[in-house]
Amino acid sequence: MISPTVFFVAIVSSMLINNVVLMRFLGVCPFLGVSKKTESALGMSLAVMFVMVISSILTYLVYHLVLEPFGIEYIFIIAFILIIASLVQLVEMAIKKFSKKLYKGLGIYLPLIVTNCAILGVAESNIRDGLASEYGFGGGLQVAIVTAFGAALGFALIMFAFSSIRERLDHANVPESWKGVPVSLVTAGIMALAFLGLGGIV
């Protein structure tokens, strides 16, 4: 039985200390691309959260039940990306069929998720060097789920904060050549500096 502290550490560490976007540079493309409006940033984050948790479970299971027992861990890249891609297809299909409203909100972001580094990155760190790799199969799975959820929360947090900042930046008087992405990047850099300060809290 894994103590609740471990889950707490997993969630805080994956959400704040090792924030996917600012500290691990995963999922920077949607971070810069889909953060112009708060609404779309939240839609993207929600879709990412959903896919990240499920894909973490699936990739963890496939790795430990199929790849590892047969000694073919080296094909994990191709296996993981295809699992994530099929999962996204399934989710998209389900949303299309059952909820038009949801599709309107999330549908546009789902295809983008396949190429979101954060999903593959979190799945990879769960099996290789993350907290989850230190517990046995069952415990590792639980920690992996919590870690994935924490990472997705961290992603959502950053997306929300950043899109709010960007909406203000649009109205700010920025030198011509800094307009748009350059000033956003520098803003993100300052956010990363702030997150650096969270390093010692756990």
Partner: peptide
């Protein structure tokens, strides 16, 4: 980590 964002921003 922060340096990456800032340097790319400036270069951009």
């Amino acid at each position: 980590p922060a340096g990456g964002f800032i340097v790319i921003g400036v270069l951009l």
